[in-house]
């Protein structure tokens, strides 16, 4: 392919978009809307995964021991748990420390604790860290089975709920993505078909004088790809803006929710949308051009 031929393709693509301005804008906007929604889901899933990861790595197991267990037995128990598979670290938190923590949490109102009359009602407990998040449940169950362990606590509910949310968001995202992509492909196809139709005489003549199929196709492909890319750029720009706005305005209000704020990571995800938009455009024009070349 010679450079001047490529220049010719681009010129033709631009000319035909100029001829169907309204339709071209409509097609680009459809692509933009589809990709905006797709991108929203992408960011949502990315963040949900990020949050789940942060929470998982923070999940600790608290195994509360019998209140009246002697300290010596408790220490032995700690060693026993430390020897278990998947356990990274065990720390025995004595009841005195537990009470101190409680006092701190009460803050100004720590005088409430004086109502206890100097008796510490708290049990000793073991703070267990696991080597990998998937091991939380297994370790928790094993520890709960030990004699002298009163109760085991871990963030199981939070983690499992989050996972089921991510699961549904993913499927919902996939479903709407497919539907919207189809409509985008369809609209690009209609737009390019208008162009092809308007230029069928020209295409006909091109064939008589010996133009190759690809020579005829390229301008239409470029047109479709350009429409898709334009739509994708609009989608990426508005998504990026919206996301940054949300992160900087809502992020501070929800300090306990970790969000992906690294703009490089966000951009890397959004870059996929540009590719998707171009692909959608190319597919749309391929559908339209295909039928007109059979002479």
């Amino acid at each position: 392919m010679k450079p001047r031929t490529i220049a010719y393709y681009f010129r033709q693509a631009v000319i035909s978009m100029g001829r169907n301005t309204g339709m071209s804008i409509a097609a680009a906007l459809t692509v933009a809307i589809a990709l905006f929604i797709l991108g929203s889901f992408l960011l949502l899933v990315t963040n949900a995964n990020f949050i789940a990861g942060v929470l998982e790595s923070n999940v600790e197991i608290a195994a509360y021991l019998d209140v009246d267990m002697p300290r010596k037995d408790a220490e032995q128990m700690a060693q026993q748990v430390a020897a278990m598979d998947l356990v990274a670290d065990v720390r025995l938190v004595p009841k005195e420390e537990g009470l101190n923590q409680l006092r701190k949490q009460f803050g100004d109102r720590h005088d409430l604790l004086s109502a206890l009359g100097g008796v510490n009602p708290l049990p000793d407990y073991l703070k267990i860290k696991v080597t990998e998040p998937e091991g939380v449940r297994a370790v928790a169950e094993a520890v709960a089975g030990l004699e002298g362990v009163e109760k085991v606590n871990y963030g199981e509910l939070v983690v499992y709920r989050l996972f089921s949310v991510i699961y549904w968001v993913r499927w919902l995202g996939l479903g709407s993505m497919i539907l919207l992509s189809l409509s985008a492909v369809f609209l690009v196809a209609i737009t390019v078909r208008l162009t092809v139709f308007a230029r069928r005489r020209e295409i006909n003549i091109m064939k008589y004088v010996g133009a190759t199929d690809w020579f005829i196709r390229w301008p239409f492909f470029l047109e479709g790809m350009f429409l898709g890319l334009t739509g994708a750029l609009v989608a990426v720009a508005s998504l990026y803006g919206t996301y940054q706005f949300l992160v900087s305005n809502i992020g501070p209000a929800l300090p306990f929710v970790p969000l992906v704020t690294d703009s490089l990571t966000v951009m890397r995800h959004l870059a996929w949308l540009l590719l998707a938009g171009t692909a959608v455009g190319a597919l749309g024009s391929a559908i339209s051009v295909h039928r007109f070349l059979k002479v």
């Binding site: 010679k2 001047r4 031929t5 010719y8 003549i205 091109m206 004088v209 010996g210 133009a211 020579f215």
Partner: peptide, 9 residues
């Protein structure tokens, strides 16, 4: 046009 189509210089 007929020459462009066959990629003449």
């Amino acid at each position: 046009f007929a020459m462009q189509v066959v990629e003449a210089a």
